[in-house]
Amino acid sequence: MENVKELLLILIGSSLVSNVVLSQFLGLCPFLGVSKKTNTAAGMGTAVIFVITLASAVAGVIYKYVLQRFHVEYLRTIVFILVIAALVQFVEMFLRKAMPALYEALGVYLPLITTNCAVLGVAITNVQKEYGILTGIVNGFATAVGFTIAIVILAGIREKLEYNDIPESFRGMPLVLLTAGLMAIAFCGFSGLL
């Protein structure tokens, strides 16, 4: 039971309380760039969930059975980034061959995620917080869910903002950043959850 409780806490903590974009600023570029429409935002979110969960699993296994075993933990940054880049390529090739339908839906977003700093960030956070493999996967999944929640909400707001009369200098990115700031304040409210 203790274990399940811990996993649940991580699930809520990583997805809402310390949201990956709004309080940790990881994955900011896709967050700002692919949030014009809700359906593309949702597509990006799904792809991120897929890749981050997989990447944290693979990174966790490699860290435990290769890096720790041979006492070369300090190589983690190099190993993780190469593993993630390779992994995304393989996932892309695999999806194209095996599941064309899923590839159609996620394919566009996969290359974008290769070096999304959120992926590397989650892998490194898992190591720094000394999570086990399962805990790491849950943390990765929760982080990605947090990203998806944030990007879909932002896309929804941006669709509404499209037709407003905005001062010239604030059109485009500044307005999106202000919206993101207000969302970050809203997400601060979650900090009482844990």
């Binding site: 604030f170 500044p174 950043l177 993101a180 700031g181 970050a184 304040i185």
Partner: peptide, 22 residues
């Protein structure tokens, strides 16, 4: 000093850039 402030400061910065650009 917290996360939302970062977004606001950057928004101001980009708005300034846009102004200079215009």
């Amino acid at each position: 000093g917290q996360a939302p402030g970062a977004f606001f400061v950057l928004a101001a910065l980009v708005a300034l850039q846009n102004y200079i650009k215009n």
